[in-house]
Design a protein around this nucleic acid. Structure first.
Lengths: 125, 125
DNA sequence: GAAGATAGTTTCCAATAGATACCAAGGAGA
DNA sequence: TCTCCTTGGTATCTATTGGAAACTATCTTC
């Protein structure tokens, strides 16, 4: 029995893809997925690498990514307990895209600054 | 004089790339950039295509994208006035990435549903 | 004169983001 | 022993944001 491929359309209101896009298209989710590309990382390790993220937001974002099957959460009964987060195969299909987004800003920051100054001069007040 | 390429790092707090990522990594911005790929589109045309977006959020998001040099805004003195939004060359360098993000969710929605059900069963309450 | 198109702005409320403090369990150092 | 440090979180509070709905203004059409 061939599974029926449902047609999803991200332009449609109430389409479930909107909920997913809301989770993926999030600054912190993008940075976390990018950070996990090189292998599993622990909670506090991510927290230190992604400077400025709060514990609450990190925990929340990790939960969302885990629930959507993009990352896995593995507990090691060490002392203190160790929790490792890693990309799932599904999550791996996303990282190229997400990393490109994360690093596009780095590459084009100077052009963006030029645009911002031009805009602000043309739109005073 | 070769321009000095400043090193930006999106993992750094207070790095300006963070502000840009905040704007790009936004559900509505992603959908708008994707929508503009095929050529200039008017305000209400975008509004009708991206179902569920409010006028306020559409206007706000268009301003942000314009200020960052990703889209252009052209006014035609017709009656009623026509305003066309289009990708700039800078914005065009982003669309492949952004569109991939927008449509990844469509392609993988079924896998995500499976993951969500598994998670919810494993984490009741 | 009322409706419909254009492209927005204004107002309001609920949801979210972020900072901060707190928790438990155990190891190391004084 | 007492205190600090680590682990990975939760709880609380407030400021900001997101989204729905209503309003603006001008001109054309019915």
């Amino acid at each position: 029995m061939t599974p029926m491929q449902q047609a999803y359309d991200v332009y449609e209101d109430r389409c479930p893809t909107r909920l997913v896009l809301d989770r993926l298209a999030d600054k912190w989710a993008v940075l976390i997925l990018d950070r996990l590309q090189d292998g599993p990382v622990r909670f506090n390790h991510i927290r230190r690498d992604i400077k400025g993220i709060s514990q609450k937001v990190l925990a929340q974002t990790l939960r969302k990514l885990e629930r959507n099957g993009l990352i896995s959460r593995t507990i090691f009964p060490t002392v203190p307990v160790t929790v490792e987060y890693a990309l799932t195969p599904l999550g791996s299909t996303l990282t190229d895209t997400v990393s490109a987004l994360a690093h596009w800003a780095e590459k084009n920051m100077d052009a963006i600054f030029v645009a911002q100054r031009a805009y602000d001069e043309a739109h005073p007040g």
